[in-house]
């Protein structure tokens, strides 16, 4: 990794240069919520001024640009009792600015599933490799617990990573294409003073985390507490709406549906992102449901995130952004659920 300094006005030039050829996604101000707090979303921007880099948290994660809610896997052309299959991958280049460390870590988690494991998924790989990632450091949000789950640092999975030093950005350059791109605008070598300022910002960030919750023993705890009353308590609140999975930066489960055109000439095979909290998630033909109760479905969401994924990939799938807790209509906050599990253990 290379470290450089870029002045803020040069960074603006860089963004505008990128905008000339590439679709740019960045946190965009939507409006204020009922409490007067600003709402931001990752959306396409048309000029630098629409981009808000000192935002707190986007309500949705940037997952949708890699795993779209609706993704056409293949198209069938039907003719004379026969058919042909057509498969297309999205290769249009795109740049996403302003991802926080938790969101980049979420992409690294998804890479493990879709790009590193067996059956690598070309739909995902194509989108991932054609996306230029620019991350940014930020002061911790009110409800996130990324530090507790070790997702507040990043080492890879991005092209550029910025740290705001007031009048300039401290830039981590993590790919050759990023180095080529950023070299189009003036950048400077780092000085001792820059390093000092950078470390001061990092120190301030690491001292400002607000939520404390213990997560390192969760894989074991979840196994022991499988029959716990905690699941009934939170499961009864759950509305089975699937909002948590929609806003989650790592939830990747999906369902495949096929649609036919009115004249029966084409059929589309479409993957829709799904949620393990939805009623028919594990229902099979004939009507048997392997997860009939809402507490079972809620439990398995935690079980997969904090135990199953650890067994498979050595770290939890959750990155502690707490978007699910923030958006849950029934007020199910993962921090409270995990704390409850610990309480149960003490009894």
């Amino acid at each position: 990794m290379l470290f450089r300094i870029i002045k803020k006005e040069d960074f603006k030039t860089f963004v505008n240069l990128m905008l000339q050829t590439t679709e740019v996604i960045a946190p965009k101000f939507i409006k204020n919520n009922a409490k007067g707090k600003p709402i931001h979303q990752f959306l396409p921007i048309s000029n630098y001024d629409e981009m808000v880099l000192d935002y707190e948290k986007c309500e949705f994660s940037a997952k949708t640009y890699f795993l779209p809610y609706k993704n056409t896997l293949s198209t069938f052309h039907m003719k004379d009792h026969d058919w042909t299959q057509e498969i297309q991958y999205r290769i249009q280049p795109r740049a996403i600015f302003g991802l926080h460390p938790c969101d980049i870590n979420a992409l690294v988690r998804l890479d493990k599933v879709f790009a590193r494991d067996f059956y690598p998924n070309p739909y995902y790989i194509s989108r991932r490799k054609n996306t230029f990632i620019v991350g940014i450091d930020h002061l911790p949000c009110d409800d996130g617990f990324c530090h507790a789950i070790n997702a507040n640092h990043i080492t890879h999975g991005f092209d550029l990573f910025l740290t705001d030093l007031g009048d300039r950005y401290f830039v981590k350059i993590n790919s050759d294409r990023a180095f080529m791109a950023i070299s189009e605008v003036p950048i400077q070598e780092i000085t001792d003073e820059d390093t000092k300022d950078y470390l001061a910002v990092r120190k301030q960030i690491s001292q400002s985390y607000k939520v404390s919750v213990k997560t390192d023993d969760l894989p074991n705890l979840l196994d022991i507490e499988f029959e716990s009353k905690v699941w009934k308590k939170w499961g009864d609140k759950c509305l089975n709406c699937g909002t948590c999975a929609m806003v989650c930066p790592t939830c990747y489960c999906y369902g495949v549906t096929e649609r036919v055109s009115m004249d029966h000439s084409t059929g589309k095979k479409i993957a829709y992102l799904y949620s393990c909290n939805l009623l028919d998630f594990a229902m099979v033909a004939g009507g048997h449901n392997f997860r009939p109760n809402q507490e079972t479905r809620l439990k398995y969401r935690y079980y997969h995130q904090h135990r199953g994924f650890v067994e498979s990939y050595g770290e939890p799938m959750c990155v502690g952004c707490n978007r699910c807790g923030r958006s849950c209509l029934a007020g199910i906050d993962p921090v409270n659920v995990i704390r409850d599990l610990h309480e149960e253990e003490k009894l």
């Binding site: 998924n121 489960c253 369902g255 993957a271 229902m283 392997f290």
Partner: peptide
Amino acid sequence: LERRMHCGMGKCCRCNIGSTFICV
């Protein structure tokens, strides 16, 4: 074992039981 499956490749998670995918 039998489960609901949408991909067969350990991606869609429909056959997931904790850390185990019935399909792989």
